[in-house]
C-alpha cells in the first residue's frame, strides 16, 4: 500500500508547472486521468510493491520483522532445484502450447477462410471456448480425463488416470491449453487471411504456382506481422497461465505440472514466503521480456 500512496504525484506536478505547460497538455492529462488512476492504483502500484518485496525476506506472518536482503532471494532461486524443474516445465508448456496452438489455429483459419457450407456457424463454433472462463474449462476437462467416468477412457477403452500419471499429466494439460487458446489465435489469423489481396493469389495462379507454393510464398509472408503478434501474445499468456492448471492438477502429480506461476503461488500462499515468491514473479517477468524482446527484434530485423 505504501507504494501506491505516493502515486498521485504526476498530476500534481503538472499543476505546479501550470504556466509553462500548454492548455492542450493540461487537457490531455485531465482526460487521461480516469484511465490512469486505476492503472496506477491497481497495476503500477502493486507491481512496484511486488518488486520491492522481492528484495526483502518478507513472509506472510504476523510476528516477522521484514528486512532488506538484497539479492539473497535471487541466489536462493538459482540454487533451488524446484525452481529449475518448474522453470523447465513452464518452458515446455509455453513453447509447445504456443507452437501447437499456432499450427492448429492456422489450419482451422485456412479452413474457415474457404467457402464452406455453414461457414458462419462453423466460425461461431470455433470461438466458443473463448467464451468460457479458465476455471470452467478446467472443470470440464477434468471430467473428460476422469479415470472412471471420463469420456476419453470410455472412447479409448483404456483405464488411465491421465492427470495423475507422472509422464502423461503434462501432455494432457498441454492438450487442454491448446484447446483453450485456439479461438483467439484462429480469429486473429482469420482476420489476417482476409486482409490478403485476392490479386496476389490470382497473379500466383497465372504464374502457375500450385496450392502449396501459393501458401508458402504468398500467404505466410503476408501473414507474417499477424503471426508475430499473435504468437508473442500467446507465449506471454501461456507462460502466465494459472487458473486452468490450478483447477486441473494443482501442479501435481509430484510437481510434474507445476508451472512457474503455480510455484510462485504456492510459495506465497501456502508456504508464506512472500519475498521469495515476489522474486520468482520478477524473474519470470524478466525472462518473458527477454525472450519476447529477442524474438521481436529478430523478426523486425528480418522484415527489414
Amino acid at each position: 500500500m505504501t507504494a501506491t500512496v505516493t502515486r498521485p504525484a504526476p498530476p500534481r506536478r503538472s499543476r505546479g508547472r501550470r504556466r509553462r505547460i500548454s492548455r492542450q497538455t493540461r487537457e490531455l492529462w485531465l482526460l487521461m486521468l480516469p484511465a490512469m488512476v486505476p492503472v496506477l492504483l491497481f497495476s503500477v502500484g502493486p507491481l512496484l510493491y511486488g518488486v520491492g518485496l522481492a528484495f526483502t525476506d518478507a513472509r506472510n506472518t504476523r510476528n516477522h520483522e521484514t528486512s532488506f536482503v538484497g539479492l539473497e532471494n535471487f541466489a536462493e532461486l538459482l540454487s533451488a532445484e524446484d525452481f529449475w524443474s518448474s522453470f523447465k516445465i513452464g518452458a515446455i508448456w509455453a513453447v509447445s502450447v504456443t507452437v501447437l496452438q499456432f499450427l492448429a489455429a492456422l489450419g482451422l483459419a485456412l479452413l474457415l477462410n474457404e467457402r464452406l457450407w455453414f461457414r458462419g456457424l462453423a466460425r461461431v463454433l470455433a470461438v466458443v471456448p473463448w467464451a468460457m472462463p479458465p476455471v470452467v474449462i478446467g472443470l470440464m476437462w477434468k471430467l473428460v480425463y476422469h479415470p472412471d467416468a471420463g469420456i476419453l477412457n470410455d472412447l479409448l477403452g483404456t483405464d488411465i488416470n491421465w492427470l495423475a500419471d507422472f509422464s502423461l499429466a503434462l501432455p494432457a494439460i498441454i492438450v487442454v491449453g491448446v484447446w483453450t487458446g485456439m479461438p483467439q489465435t484462429t480469429v486473429v489469423l482469420l482476420a489476417g487471411l482476409q486482409g490478403i489481396g485476392k490479386e496476389l493469389y490470382e497473379a500466383g495462379e497465372v504464374d502457375g504456382a500450385g496450392r502449396w507454393r501459393r501458401f508458402w510464398n504468398i500467404t505466410l509472408p503476408q501473414l507474417r506481422p499477424v503471426i508475430v503478434a499473435i504468437t508473442s501474445l500467446d507465449f506471454v499468456w501461456n507462460i502466465n497461465q494459472f487458473g486452468l492448471v490450478y483447477v486441473l492438477t494443482q501442479g501435481g502429480p509430484g510437481g510434474q505440472t507445476r508451472l512457474p506461476m503455480l510455484f510462485a503461488y504456492e510459495e506465497a500462499f501456502r508456504y508464506r514466503m512472500a519475498g521469495y515468491a515476489s522474486m520468482l514473479g520478477l524473474t519470470m517477468a524478466i525472462v518473458v521480456l527477454a525472450v519476447l524482446g529477442l524474438y521481436l527484434w529478430r523478426q523486425m530485423r528480418e522484415t527489414k
Binding site: 500500500m1 505504501t2 501506491t4 500512496v5 502515486r7 498521485p8 498530476p11 500534481r12 499543476r15 493540461r26 487537457e27 485531465l30 486521468l33 480516469p34 488512476v37 492504483l41
Partner: peptide, 21 residues
C-alpha cells in the same frame, strides 16, 4: 471546473488508498 475536477480526483484517489490500507 477542470481544476476542481482534478482536485476531486486526487482526493478520491487518496481516500481510496487510505481506506485500503
Amino acid at each position: 471546473i477542470k481544476s476542481a475536477l482534478a482536485a476531486a480526483a486526487i482526493v478520491a484517489l487518496a481516500a481510496a488508498c487510505g481506506s485500503g490500507g
